[in-house]
C-alpha cells in the first residue's frame, strides 16, 4: 500500500467529515429557515465528500476498514482534519468566516487535484469542486454582507477573522507526505494553493471592509500529526457514541 496516499486521502476525508459534523449542529438552530437549510446542505455535501475520500483511504490501506470504521472507530490522535474545522460554531458570523477559510482552501486544493496522476484522486476532486464552488460563493457573499452590514455584524465577523486567523497556518503546512506525493504528481502544490488562498481571502475581507490580522501572529498547527485542539474529543464523543455503544445498530 502507498502509506503516503493513505495519509493524504485521510486528511481530505477527515477535514470534510469534521466540518460536516460541526455544520450539522446548526440543524434546527439557524438564524432563519433559509440559512438553517443552507448550512445543513453544505454539511451534507461535505459528508458525501468525506464518505468518498474515507472509502478510498480504506481501499488504499487494504485492511478491510471501510468509511464507517474509519469515521467511527478512530480516536482523536488518529484524525487528520484541519484544526479550523473543529472550531466551534460560536455564532452565524463565526461559522461563515470558518466556512470562507476552509472553502477557499478546498477550492484551490481541489482545483490542483483535478490534474492529479492518480485517477481516483482526480475524479474525487472534480466531483467535490462543483460543490465547493457553491460553498465558496455562499460564504464569500455572506462575508461581504456581514462585514459591510451593521456595526454589530461587522464587529462580530471581525472578531471571528481575528480568532480563526491563528489556525490558517495549519492549512498550508507541508510534510514528507506532501513532498513524496508532489513528486508523483498526486498531491497539490501547497505553495500555489497558499498564494491563491491569500489573494482571494484578502480580496473578500477587503471588500467586506474587514481588516486582515498581522502576518507575524502565532500560528497554531498540528493537524498533520494528529495534534488537535480540545474540541475534537467532544465532537467525536457525540459523533461516535451510537456505533460504539451499539455496534450492530442498523437503520
Amino acid at each position: 500500500m502507498n502509506k503516503d496516499l493513505f495519509e493524504y486521502t485521510l486528511r481530505l476525508g477527515d477535514t470534510s467529515l469534521i466540518l460536516s459534523q460541526r455544520l450539522g449542529e446548526w440543524c434546527g438552530h439557524g438564524p432563519m429557515l433559509e440559512e438553517d437549510i443552507a448550512l445543513t446542505n453544505i454539511a451534507l455535501d461535505l459528508l458525501g465528500q468525506a464518505k468518498a475520500f474515507l472509502a478510498y483511504a480504506g481501499e488504499i490501506e487494504g485492511k478491510g476498514r471501510n468509511e464507517d470504521v474509519l469515521a467511527f472507530h478512530r480516536d482523536a490522535n488518529h484524525f487528520r482534519n484541519l484544526l479550523l474545522t473543529e472550531q466551534p460554531n460560536v455564532d452565524f458570523g463565526f461559522t461563515i468566516i470558518r466556512q470562507l477559510f476552509v472553502s477557499t482552501w478546498q477550492h484551490y486544493l481541489y482545483s490542483e487535484l483535478t490534474h492529479a496522476t492518480d485517477k481516483n484522486m482526480s475524479a474525487l476532486a472534480v466531483k467535490s469542486l462543483k460543490e465547493v464552488n457553491y460553498h465558496l460563493r455562499f460564504a464569500s457573499d455572506w462575508t461581504l454582507r456581514l462585514g459591510d452590514g451593521t456595526e454589530e455584524s461587522h464587529q462580530r465577523v471581525q472578531a471571528a477573522v481575528n480568532e480563526l486567523w491563528n489556525y490558517t497556518g495549519d492549512l498550508f503546512e507541508i510534510d514528507q507526505v506532501d513532498e513524496a506525493l508532489l513528486k508523483l504528481g498526486i498531491a497539490a502544490d501547497m505553495k500555489k494553493v497558499e498564494a491563491s488562498w491569500n489573494k482571494h481571502i484578502r480580496q473578500v475581507l477587503n471588500d467586506a471592509t474587514l481588516s486582515v490580522p498581522e502576518i507575524n501572529n502565532f500560528m497554531r498547527t498540528g493537524s498533520r500529526k494528529g495534534v488537535h485542539t480540545e474540541y475534537l474529543g467532544f465532537i467525536l464523543a457525540e459523533m461516535q457514541f451510537l456505533p460504539r455503544a451499539y455496534p450492530d445498530a442498523k437503520w
Binding site: 432563519m32 429557515l33 433559509e34 440559512e35 437549510i37 443552507a38 446542505n41 460563493r137 455562499f138 457573499d141 455572506w142 454582507r145
Partner: peptide
C-alpha cells in the same frame, strides 16, 4: 426571505432545489 437578489437566489436554490 433575503436582503438582496443575489442572496434570494442562493436561498431559493437551498430551499427549493435540494
Amino acid at each position: 426571505r433575503a436582503a438582496d437578489k443575489e442572496m434570494a437566489l442562493l436561498n431559493a436554490r437551498d430551499v427549493y432545489s435540494r
